[in-house]
Write a protein that binds this DNA or RNA. Sequence first.
DNA 1: GCCAACGTTGGC
DNA 2: GCCAACGTTGGC
Length: 139
Amino acid sequence: MAYWLFKSEPSVWSWENQVAKGTDGEEWDGVRNYQARNNMREMKVGDRGFFYHSQKDKAVVGIVEVCAEAHPDSTTDDPRWECVDIRAVDPFERPVTLAEIKETPELSDMALVTNSRLSVQPVTKAEWKIICGMGGVVA
DNA sequence: GCCAACGTTGGC
DNA sequence: GCCAACGTTGGC
C-alpha cells in the first residue's frame, strides 16, 4: 500500500466537506498539473493519504482512503485530466502544522517542504508513521 | 497583501 | 526547441 498527501484550500474544499461525503467519498477533481495527475494515476484502491489544509491552516488534519482509481475528471472535457475518488477515514486528534513538519529533520525531504506548490504528492512509509504519531492517530 | 517559485503558453 | 511572458499557488 502506498501513501499520499492531498492538499486543499479549506475555503474551497475542506476536511469537513470531505467528511460530509461519508463512505462514498468524492472526486478529487480540479487538478490541472501533470505531476499531481501522474501521482493520482499511480494510486490503488485502499491507498491512504493525508488531507492537508493550505493557506490559513497549513496543517495536516486527517486521513483519507482512495476508493476509486483514476478516471476522467468530470469537471472538464479535456481528456488529459483524471482524478481519483477519496473518502475521509480518520480525523487527527490534533492537526500537524507545516511549521512542525519543517522542524522535524526526518520530514525535510517531503514535497510539502521542497515543492510547496505540488497539490498531490507521495509520502514515504517512514514519513507516514511520524506524522500519524504527531497527529495522535495509529498509523 | 506581497512576492517567490513554479508551470504553462505561445511566438519565434 | 528555446525562452520570455504570464498566471497561479501558497507561505509569509
